[in-house]
Design a protein around this nucleic acid. Sequence first.
DNA 1: CGCATAGTTAACTAAGTCGTTAACTATGTA
DNA 2: TACATAGTTAACGACTTAGTTAACTATGCG
Lengths: 114, 114
Amino acid sequence: MYEQLDTTFSALAHPARRAILTQLRAGEANVTTLAEPYGMSLPAISRHLKVLEGAGLIARTVNGRFHRCRLVPEAANEAGDWLQNHRRFWTDRLDSLADYVDKLNKDSQGDNDE
Amino acid sequence: MYEQLDTTFSALAHPARRAILTQLRAGEANVTTLAEPYGMSLPAISRHLKVLEGAGLIARTVNGRFHRCRLVPEAANEAGDWLQNHRRFWTDRLDSLADYVDKLNKDSQGDNDE
DNA sequence: CGCATAGTTAACTAAGTCGTTAACTATGTA
DNA sequence: TACATAGTTAACGACTTAGTTAACTATGCG
């Protein structure tokens, strides 16, 4: 039930893969182009791309010798939602805490240390 | 420069660790309590907690024999921002695409296949 | 054909992850 | 002291990850 989040988060856990995703925001690119910024062999990039593809974060269209890669926008949604949820929970809690502290201050004007 | 995102995302990549984070939204809990829901040994949970702690996602206070664990709210921010940024980029692009398609439809009323 | 380009697959190494059980430390309690 | 509870550390095995180089497939071009 959680496999999608597993693969998405672990795909995002590698800096080269995040960089590739960022790179692809500028538009489609083929494998060699994507490989250029890194001091990394082509096979290494090839497998990073396969990981991203496996996570559904990118897709490719083979055109002759060229593999044109592009972002798949929806793929990051589940992970984004999870984190947003986690954070929203906390802002909610902190709001409650703020209210609580506020109330404390109002109730006993003064000396509450620590 | 990217190490924080690396550790955060890979900490989130394991279902047990995400579950622990979710569990901790209900409040602080000690290690044995956190271990209960999983068919997993205590040492296994102990290391999951260490991973979460290493990523800064949780913190603990040792009180006698009990290690009381709690969420650290700010820790998920960088990762959340990265994903939100990634997604915002795409909604922007899709808006542009919608506009573009809209314009195409207006310009040549009909038959654009593929 | 012969050769270059784009990219993948294979084989290997080094290191990391994730689980186990067994043994340990530390605290509380009779 | 002796014993139970809370939790960590150590040692191990199975598996995965991330990189390398070498060899391969497939396309394009003279």
